[in-house]
Design a binder for these strands. Structure first.
Length: 420
RNA sequence: GUGAGUGUAGCUCAGCUUGGUUAGAGCACCAGAUUGUGGCUCUGGGGGUCGUGGGUUCAAGUCCCAUCACUCACCCCA
């Protein structure tokens, strides 16, 4: 048996309505906030991610699906969406069409990690990006957008954590201070942290190892070492969040795993999930555009995991999708009725109603059972009696009543009855 | 990459500790009770190389070894 690739999922027909309902809600909310959808290819030149996300990040260094195509070009299935959005923004010169671009996406992404609860190799994210302004209002609007979507879904028990990682200037100063703090005890840190010390010391603060956590207890905090501009920006974002009534917790050790972030970073977690509890992460990335050879473009965005959202919704018993209903089930009895059935279905379907008939030659009883299974509103029985009298026996499944309706008026009848 | 757990019917699982007739249950499916009528109830039925390969034994779903798959967790993240 050929099996699906590890860490991928088939989304079966009884699950797709949940996806569609969630996607519809996302699109509705993106519309309210005036964000516009941008779709990018499923793969890109590897270079885009290596330069955009950062060589030393986990994503780039060990999780990308990278391969050579037949022309020996190195390609990568996109592991995140911010770099592709930025690439498209630069390549299509969207900055020249409008000074500010508010974009959103819903897309599958690929990372070759070991799968576990809430982590897949092909997974889906939706997200938004505001390109072209350094205004802290854009940061606050972005968080408000994410928060509103989750609220609209009906999620509870969410926690928003907020931090500022400064800009390259204050971060460079801070890195020196941090390394000074760590150096005396460096040999006591875990091997990962010892490696991070030179590569990316900020990530040492992120370490979950109890020893490292303890050692970090009195480490200087980046938020205490922001330059004046970054400080003012961070304060403005917090003030707006208060005005928007969005509760948040400042987390001085929140460091995002991607290199492009500057200033605002945030993460939204749910207590309903297991080890992988982040449903949304984002922040400001004022330097990415330049890194990708584009014009200087301050930007802010977020990404949220659809599978994880669906898991939380499941946990909380939230059902967005309406139970599917079939309007009409045609139950033909005998060969003659079966031969005429399809043409009737075509007429009924042309009115906009959904219609189905038995294709298995089942008994009337089995057909009724099938109609019931499909949550059918009307069953049209077409047997020898009906053919002779030129009428349908129509069973109104919700009421359990049955009446006869002549062929000439059946369409009219169904349209009126279904509108009730 | 590391660690732990689990593989028995379409699905969820029991049976394995203490090896011994034809391997069970619930749900789902099919049929009948109701000779042309759903949901509820009752009765019956179909469906399994017990993940795979090897070993121990008179005898293996059950014990041992290997292997594969899946799951969860570490790391990191959505």
């Amino acid at each position: 048996m050929i099996r699906r690739i590890k860490g991928t999922q088939d989304i079966l027909p009884d699950e797709t309505p949940k996806w569609v309902a969630l996607e519809n809600l996302i699109r509705k909310m993106m519309g309210r906030y005036n964000f516009h959808e941008l779709r990018t290819p499923i793969f890109e030149q590897t270079q885009l991610f290596a330069r955009g996300i950062g060589q030393l990040t986990d994503i780039v260094s060990k999780e990308m699906y990278t391969f050579l195509d037949r022309g020996k070009k190195q390609l990568t299935l996109k592991p995140e969406m911010t770099a592709p959005i930025m690439r498209a923004y630069i390549e299509n010169k969207l900055y020249a069409k409008a000074p500010l671009n508010k974009l959103f996406y819903i897309a599958p992404l690929f990372r070759q990690e070991n799968p576990q609860a809430g982590r897949l190799r092909q997974f889906h994210q939706f997200g938004a990006e505001t390109l072209g302004t350094p205004d802290p209002n854009a940061d606050a609007e972005m968080i408000d957008l994410a928060w509103s979507i989750f609220k609209e879904i009906g999620l509870t028990n969410l926690t928003l954590r907020l931090n500022s990682v400064g800009d390259p200037n204050c971060r460079a100063d801070y890195k020196i201070k941090l390394k000074e703090y760590i150096r005396p005890n460096l040999d006591k840190y875990c091997p990962d942290c010892q490696r991070r010390y030179d590569e990316n010391p900020l990530r040492i603060l992120d370490c979950k190892n109890p020893t490292c956590v303890a050692l970090n207890q009195n480490a200087p905090k980046l938020v205490d070492n922001l330059c004046d501009d970054c400080r003012a920006h961070y304060d403005a974002v917090k003030e707006q969040l208060h005005r928007l009534n969005i509760p948040f917790a400042e987390d001085p050790y929140l460091v995002r795993g991607l290199d492009y972030y500057t200033r605002t970073v945030f993460e939204i977690t749910s207590s309903a999930l297991g080890a992988q509890n982040a449903i949304c992460g984002g922040g400001r990335y004022d330097l990415l555009a330049k890194e990708l050879d584009g014009p200087d473009t301050p930007a802010v965005g977020f990404a949220a995991g659809i599978e994880r959202l669906l898991m939380v919704m499941e946990q909380q018993g939230i059902v967005l999708a309406k139970k599917a209903r079939l309007d009409v089930f045609l139950a033909p009895l005998g060969d003659k009725a079966r031969a005429e059935g399809l043409a009737w279905l075509q007429k009924i379907r042309a009115t906009g109603l959904s219609a189905e008939m038995d294709l298995l030659g089942r008994s009337i009883k089995a057909q009724m059972r099938e109609a019931n299974r499909q949550n059918t509103r009307f069953v049209l029985i077409l047997g020898e009696n009906e053919l002779e009298k030129q009428e349908f026996a129509v069973k109104l499944m919700d009421k359990g009543e049955q009446i006869n309706v002549p062929f000439e008026t059946i369409i009219d009848f169904l349209e009126k009855e279904s509108a009730k």
